[in-house]
Design a binder for these strands. Structure first.
Length: 196
DNA sequence: AGTGCGATTGACT
DNA sequence: GTCAATCGCACTA
């Protein structure tokens, strides 16, 4: 398993969000490897009022302002951890939210982490994804382009058709087409009809 | 120091 | 379909 090289990541946030569709997230735990294919992402771009980075760097968002290809992990609604990939040049705050995975390896571990047997529910949604991979605050700032407990990787799978739509669950800047997903993939989150 | 509010989820009608 | 849980953060004063 070779991590994605930082040099091959598109600098532009929306381009990176699209690029990451079909790539893999690989999680190495003491119990074994967990991996999944990225089937849904959202871009939080420069100048985006929906982005946590919009008002400048804060203690929480510092990872969005570092080198690209690092994890930005935060807690949403006091209940769910979110995994993002930092984008743009160092000093610029932007990132890509990984919203859903198609489980590949370590499915038994994912079931144990999630407390459910339902394959479709293991990593469909950003909070579920983080729970399935046991991603928490420890991963904030981690380099995702290096060997380690969590990284991004290539996938040999044939590229499917990528759909574009509006982002889910936000109120500000809600009309921008910054959500990317694999058309028709059953592991894409969101209300029915948003993955067609 | 106080307060309002989410880049969600799961339980329930 | 509706709705509460839950808490760290950023904004106001």
């Amino acid at each position: 398993m070779t991590p994605l090289a930082r040099a091959e990541l598109p600098v532009d946030t929306a381009a990176l969000a699209r690029f990451l569709i079909g790539k893999q997230v690989v999680r190495e735990t003491p119990e074994g490897v967990i991996s999944g294919r990225i089937v849904e992402t959202e871009a939080y771009v420069v100048g985006d009022t929906a982005s946590h980075a919009f008002r400048g760097m804060t203690p929480r968002t510092r990872s969005m302002f570092g080198e690209p290809g690092h994890a930005y992990v935060y807690l949403a609604y006091g209940t769910s951890w979110m995994l993002n990939v930092s984008s743009e040049a160092a000093g610029t705050g932007a990132g890509v939210l990984i919203r859903a995975l198609e489980p590949l390896e370590g499915i038994a571990l994912m079931r144990a982490n999630r407390g459910t047997e339902t394959l479709r529910d293991l990593a469909r949604g950003p909070g579920r994804l983080a729970q399935a991979l046991r991603i928490g605050p420890w991963a904030d700032g981690l380099d995702l382009c290096a060997d380690g407990p969590l990284c991004l990787a290539h996938d040999d799978h044939e590229p499917d058709e990528i759909g574009v739509g509006v982002r889910i669950g936000i109120t500000k800047d809600a009309d921008r087409p910054l959500r990317f997903y694999l058309r028709g993939n059953p592991f894409v989150s969101g209300p029915k009809g948003l993955n067609v």
